[in-house]
Amino acid sequence: MPSRLILTDVGKSFVMHLRGGVTIPVISGVSFSIDAGECVVLGGPSGIGKSSILKMIYGNYGVEAGQIICACESGKLIDIASADARTIHALRRRTLGYVSQFLRVVPRVSALDVVAEPLAAQGASHEEARRRAAELLARLNLPEALWDLPPATFSGGEQQRVNIARGFITDHAILLLDEPTASLDAQNRAVVIDLIAEKKKAGVAMLGIFHDKDVREVVADRVIDVATFSRRSNAA
């Protein structure tokens, strides 16, 4: 299977100007690649920079050093580390999906529309997008009574299932999973595991963080120990 995502010597630190310009090292020397149809899990203790790696790939964090090459379906290669905002935005719509731990709630939009939105953004009809959204929410056992309500008042687990459905509804070639099962019960965890397996079969390259050991063992084709990447030199 071809490589979808290739990180080469990626590094990042924060400069805290409000604290006298102190530099906080995050991570450096991150190099690995992910193939299509592969689920790679980032391992290591918390605070080691796993989420930061996901955020750099998704473009939420600027990349200080190295490159992050994303292979698009079109065959084009894009370096996320140096791409402009518009390129990353287009990449997110077409190629790069992200399931975060926390739902960023948009007021007044129903759960169904929150889930349907990324599919609609790719050009699917409103009806089709909502139909797929309903399927996914049903699979994730979200009570149907909630579908037409904005998720702002949902419980953490309910919100997370909305978020998972939103992340899995599209056919993005690359999916970043930031603890998608964190606050789910066993039944819904199993659903997510199935969803991941289906994505793998469809050739989606996935990079995830799973603190739940059971889930990790089931879904991971490979675990990358983030501790092997060095911190920034000035912190050493």
């Binding site: 190295g66 490159q67 090459i69 698009c72 079109s74 084009k76 290669l77 894009i78 370096d79 140096s82 791409a83 518009r86 390129t87 287009a90 990449l91 077409r94 190629t95």
Partner: peptide
């Protein structure tokens, strides 16, 4: 270091 950089995907205007 940017030798792989490409123009944006064709899908966008």
């Amino acid at each position: 270091m940017n030798e792989h950089v490409e123009t944006p995907p064709v899908a966008i205007e």
